[in-house]
Computed example of a mutant assay.
Amino acid sequence: MHEPKGRLTDIFNLTTDGSGQPQSVLMLDQLTHVPEVGDVLQVSDRNLSIAQVDRQRMRSCLTGWPLVGLGSIAVLVNAPTEELKPLARYPNRLWVTWKPKADLPWHFKTVDLPKFTRLNEDWNAHPNDVGLRLEKSGDELIARMKPNPYAYRQYDNVPEIAVRFVNCSKYRVTPVNDEGWYSGQCRFSRLAPEWGEFYEISGNTQDNMNFTHWIKMEGVGAKHFHFYLKDETLEIKAQDWVLISES
């Protein structure tokens, strides 16, 4: 079984609470899972029970800056800051793990993990576009959307882009949005590198974990393409894809 982990980036002190216990805040990023109150954090040789979790997480919707894992959160532990502070000074940051109270998601319990290849290296859909438009003909599916000119300036004057999938066997649009992804509603939450990207996913894609109906087409392509959009997620089984910019 894989352990959840995160990277310790900073530790600072809070005023002692009414019980007289010391309070330290640990900043964690590059999370593979979001810890809960009561989970036991393993920091170097210390086991620290988490007393509080700040769920504010940083995102990168407009800037295009990379968001690794689930962003950055703060956890509160009842331990003296002066004893913990040196742990945040490791040259390459210190990776920490924790023992959750609740069951972990499926991907922590298997070695047969899917692999994600990001396909949109120099383009993306507009972060606020809710108008995904699909056209299908025979074994071809075209997904039309507005481009993101904030992160990719070459699309400043391009009103629409289209992704054409060839030899498409089936597709579906699921209701998983960004909030659902961050809260663990997607089967690839905490597993896909980032929200809001376009991936080819190889290996076991666990399609039966989402109950959205597939729409069949005339092709036989079997590659799994996965596009996280603002209010939905597009999943396609096809042979290949190509990007079309329309002026």
Rank of each mutant, 00 (worst) to 15 (best):
V173C: 02
R164M: 12
G184D: 07
L191H: 09
C186R: 00
P149N: 13
E160M: 12
Y171V: 12
G184A: 09
S169K: 03
S189P: 08
S183F: 01
N148K: 04
V166M: 10
Y155L: 00
S189C: 05
R190H: 10
T174S: 13
R190G: 11
Q185G: 00
V163A: 01
V173S: 03
G180L: 02
S169G: 15
Y171K: 04
K170Y: 11
R190I: 07
Q185A: 04
D178N: 07
V163E: 01
N167R: 00
F188H: 05
G184M: 02
G184H: 05
G180R: 06
R190E: 14
S169N: 11
C186E: 03
V166E: 13
G180V: 03
D178P: 06
D178G: 08
Y152D: 11
S189I: 06
C186L: 00
P149V: 05
V158E: 02
V173A: 03
D156Y: 07
D156N: 12
R164S: 11
P175H: 06
W181Y: 11
K170N: 13
P175S: 10
R190S: 13
S183G: 01
R164P: 12
A162T: 13
D178L: 05
V163G: 07
S169D: 15
R164Y: 05
R187L: 10
L191N: 09
K170F: 12
N157I: 05
F188M: 04
E179K: 14
E160C: 14
C168E: 05
I161W: 05
P175A: 08
N177F: 03
T174K: 07
V158S: 04
K170P: 10
C168Y: 00
G180C: 01
Y150L: 09
L191I: 14
Y182R: 15
Y152A: 09
T174Y: 05
N148W: 07
Y171I: 13
V176R: 12
P159L: 08
V163W: 03
E179D: 14
R190D: 15
Y182H: 12
T174L: 09
D156R: 09
